[in-house]
Every structure is written in structure tokens, then in C-alpha cells.
Amino acid sequence: MKLDDDIHNYYEHLVLEKLITLELGKTKSDDYLADLSCLVLNQLPPRYIRHEVDMAFYLPGSERQQMEMNVIQAIRSAVDYLDAHPKKAM
């Protein structure tokens, strides 16, 4: 078994999905988005799964909704932080 292929954090999927929906890639650099993703994921508890279908089948709608709200709040917080602390050019 290869862990990097078989197991992943479900929040990674939710964060990516929300970043695409928000279209941040149109106004932010890849570097910014990578930093943003790390900051967001570090605010969220890990939720490891093997298959996306497992979460779709076993996750109650109310828990999925709470997870999505947690992602939105974490994105807001991370964007505020990054915008207040821009990287300096090297």
C-alpha cells in the first residue's frame, strides 16, 4: 500500500473546490494560492479518507454543510492574513 496514493485529507478536496468557486486564481498568483491553501488547511482538522465516494455516502448533510462553512471561514481568515502580510520580493 502506498499512503500517498491511497489516503488523503478530505478537506484538501473541499478547499480546492471552494478556491475554484471563488475564482481566486484569476487575481492571485500560484505562490499566493499555495500559501493560502497551507494556511487554510492548517486551520482545519484532518479528515482522512481513502475514496471520495466514502464521504459522499457516509457523511450526513449537516456535517458536510458544517465542513463547508469551516472552509469558508478558514479561507477568509487566511486571505486577511496574507493580504495584511504581503511577501517581500527577493
Rank of each mutant, 00 (worst) to 15 (best):
residue 24 L to I: 05
residue 66 Q to M: 10
residue 16 L to E: 13
residue 1 M to D: 09
residue 35 D to A: 10
residue 36 L to C: 12
residue 27 T to D: 14
residue 57 F to M: 03
residue 75 I to T: 03
residue 80 D to E: 02
residue 21 T to L: 10
residue 82 L to S: 15
residue 56 A to L: 08
residue 85 H to E: 05
residue 42 N to S: 13
residue 5 D to N: 14
residue 80 D to S: 10
residue 22 L to Q: 09
residue 67 M to R: 08
residue 7 I to D: 02
residue 88 K to T: 09
residue 15 V to R: 05
residue 51 H to V: 09
residue 18 K to G: 07
residue 73 Q to E: 05
residue 25 G to W: 14
residue 6 D to S: 12
residue 14 L to Y: 03
residue 23 E to F: 06
residue 71 V to M: 01
residue 81 Y to H: 12
residue 59 L to K: 00
residue 76 R to P: 01
residue 56 A to S: 00
residue 48 Y to C: 05
residue 87 K to F: 08
residue 56 A to R: 02
residue 65 Q to F: 01
residue 33 L to P: 07
residue 6 D to Y: 05
residue 90 M to Y: 06
residue 11 Y to Q: 08
residue 63 E to D: 15
residue 11 Y to C: 07
residue 18 K to S: 13
residue 58 Y to T: 02
residue 24 L to Q: 02
residue 32 Y to N: 06
residue 22 L to D: 08
residue 10 Y to L: 06
residue 10 Y to D: 06
residue 63 E to Q: 14
residue 72 I to Y: 01
residue 2 K to H: 11
residue 8 H to L: 12
residue 57 F to A: 03
residue 67 M to G: 14
residue 6 D to F: 11
residue 58 Y to H: 03
residue 87 K to H: 07
residue 10 Y to G: 05
residue 54 D to W: 03
residue 41 L to H: 07
residue 52 E to Y: 04
residue 40 V to P: 13
residue 76 R to K: 01
residue 72 I to P: 01
residue 29 S to H: 08
residue 77 S to V: 01
residue 18 K to P: 07
residue 62 S to V: 06
residue 28 K to I: 09
residue 48 Y to A: 04
residue 39 L to G: 12
residue 52 E to M: 12
residue 30 D to W: 09
residue 60 P to C: 05
residue 15 V to C: 11
residue 75 I to Q: 00
residue 56 A to V: 02
residue 30 D to H: 14
residue 10 Y to I: 06
residue 5 D to T: 13
